[in-house]
Write a protein that binds this DNA or RNA. Structure first.
Lengths: 359, 359
DNA sequence: GCCCCCTGTGGAAACGTTTCCACCAATGGG
DNA sequence: CCCATTGGTGGAAACGTTTCCACAGGGGGC
């Protein structure tokens, strides 16, 4: 049939009241076998399906959860979103997705919209969890929510990588490989609390390991022509032996830029990334990086929201230090102790060609 | 305030009827300056926002569009989804996203759910556009929709790569490089009409170029241990010089598997992919592939749906042959004419190291 | 034989909007 | 002076559900 049969149509065709139809279809309350039969026949004939809109109005619940992330072009977010979406689907919830493109205004509007749509909960990765208009709105409405990738300000729920600790671990790894002078490369430093936390963790880690404070290079564009930035950066800091990039894409772009500048990676410059996207294993040299589990984080955050809605006990959160691990790779090369002129000795093969596999 | 103020609360506080509040806030119909003032003050005091649920029930419209894709872990779909989502956002529509994980049952359920949610339109990438229960449902409800990546069965709207023509182009490229014996590697052959169309196009292209009919290798898992499959495949077809993989991920996995089998790519085996994901440019050798514009396809499909809803004229669709192009890469190496034993001459450098740049 | 309770049923209210319509006052033209 | 129009306003219906309540009939316990 063409247009949307309603419960009234079904009732009329079955020759009963709407209440009976509702009871039969929802299996709530009694109904005679014969009536049940008639109702089901009518439903079948009319191809009837309940309107969720009517239901939502009545039940004050939409079985919909909003999800706001910067962009799903980044596989980290894509994986997390998909993980959450699966959890929602299995629980009978749908997901409204909005990508902010890292824009705080879009972020605020998105959250406002989701609130107006009466979503039952929201899953948020905001630009800055310390001052987010949208987050404030969510709080004031007491809407079930969970932060994702953002570090929670106070006792709030969040599923995040331990950015600070992970970045400190990167400093440890640089130190273990005798690097003293490193740089930190950040995209969107101002608009991302994650990048800032990674920077702070890295600075602390460098200090702890008696390394020089890392030089900071901030880029704002999407880094196609990272080459010019890198040239200037290395010119200003000629003694750098390693760069920690705030995410894997940036790290890969840096490797390519270095190649354009005829700088050998890792022989002349080591690179470490953050996120652990699969691609890092496919490139040459393979990318040393912090590996995270975005899908699990997304799923966990999704479950948290569901438990908030249902009042059930929330899922166990992994301890801050088990949400990441360091993955060795050819892009990080050890320097000889107390010298940085020559880097022939490799703890990890700079190639992932198995014909050269050493381990 | 804690819980959701309604229009009645506003009316009461402003000392007027609900109709007046509605008129003021929607700028529909007259209202005195003083009343306008009072209403706005009340809205401000109560932090009032319209409930979209109430609105939807009344207007029979939800300003929501459903989107069903196999998975956003694949950047092709992720980009397309994001492109569509942006179009929707700019038009004041939100997007419900469901990933099917390539499962037809989930696909059917997803579409059913979206219909029940009264979405104003749907954007679909189905497993098989020829026989899709969900698609049938959408058609019978006359719900505005557009297919994405699927070839439309008849006069229906779809935004797709010209899979058939693109695959034929790949055959041309193999032929131009003197390959005669090739294989086609497909994931989920049974569950994806795209893979089938690419296969058919490739078969036709091979025939047109007087090449041997391609050998077909079908894998069903997500291809971590493609190595065993590849070993068997090459054993059964020892004269293969090139493999066309039905998507880039599969192509990259094939390259890695070949490496595990000590088979040099491209010297001993050429690989061509499909999709043109960015990663293909980062690997070594760079991946020869069909480049597509998923983001544009997603945006176009999104606009098509909006125009269907609004009755405006639909966006121009690019001609079937301009939706893709071939990207040369080091993974496809020319063979000497009339011989396949030695492949020293490279039309494209097998490395993307700029120090070896020849062009 | 009476009352109570249980099963089966339908009417109607409520959810939050928009919009049609009716009403009132004021104003202007005849 | 009266009538028609216009601007400003509120009541109420409608959208599609769920659920409370009332009601009818029947069976069983006393």
């Amino acid at each position: 049939m063409g247009q949307a049969a309603t419960i009234k149509d079904v009732a009329q065709r079955a020759g009963c009241g709407v209440a009976t139809v509702s009871r039969v279809l929802n299996n709530t309350g009694p109904a005679s076998a014969e009536m049940r039969e008639r109702v089901l026949a009518a439903v079948d004939a009319l191809d009837f399906q309940f309107s969720e809109v009517g239901r939502s109005l009545q039940s004050n619940t939409t079985r919909t959860i909003g999800c706001v992330v910067p962009s799903i072009e980044n596989p980290v977010y894509a994986d997390a979103v998909q993980g959450a979406q699966e959890v929602f689907r299995n629980a009978g919830y749908q997901m409204l997705l909005i990508c902010t493109n890292y824009s705080p205004e879009i972020e605020t509007n998105a959250i406002r919209t989701l609130v107006a749509k009466q979503v039952d909960g929201v899953l948020l990765t905001v630009a800055d969890a310390q001052k987010s208009e949208g987050l404030d709105l969510v709080r004031s409405r007491r809407l079930p929510h969970s932060l994702l990738f953002n570090e929670a300000p106070d006792g709030e729920v969040s599923w995040s990588v331990g950015d600070h600790a992970a970045a400190a671990l990167v400093a440890d790894k640089f130190a273990m490989n005798n690097h003293k002078n490193t740089g930190f490369l950040a995209l969107n430093f101002l608009n991302s609390d994650r990048a800032r936390q990674r920077y702070e963790g890295f600075v602390e880690g460098c200090a702890k390991n008696a390394m020089a404070p890392p030089a900071l290079l901030e880029v704002d564009d999407d880094g196609h022509d990272l080459t010019d930035h890198l040239r200037g950066f290395l010119h200003d800091h000629p003694d750098l032996t390693g760069i920690f990039a705030s995410n894997d894409f940036l790290a890969l772009a840096t490797i390519r830029s270095a190649r354009n500048l005829f700088i050998k990676v890792p022989q002349e410059l080591s690179i470490v990334g953050f996120d652990g996207i699969k691609v890092g294993l496919m490139v040459e040299p393979s990318l040393a990086t912090i590996v995270t589990a975005p899908r699990d984080l997304g799923a966990g955050a999704g479950q948290t929201i569901l438990s908030l809605i249902n009042g059930t006990s929330p899922p166990e959160r992994p301890s801050k230090n088990s949400t990441f691990s360091f993955r060795a790779g050819g892009s990080l090369m050890p320097l000889p102790a107390e010298s940085k002129d020559d880097g022939k000795v490799a703890a990890f093969p700079p190639s992932n060609d198995p014909t050269q596999k050493t381990a």
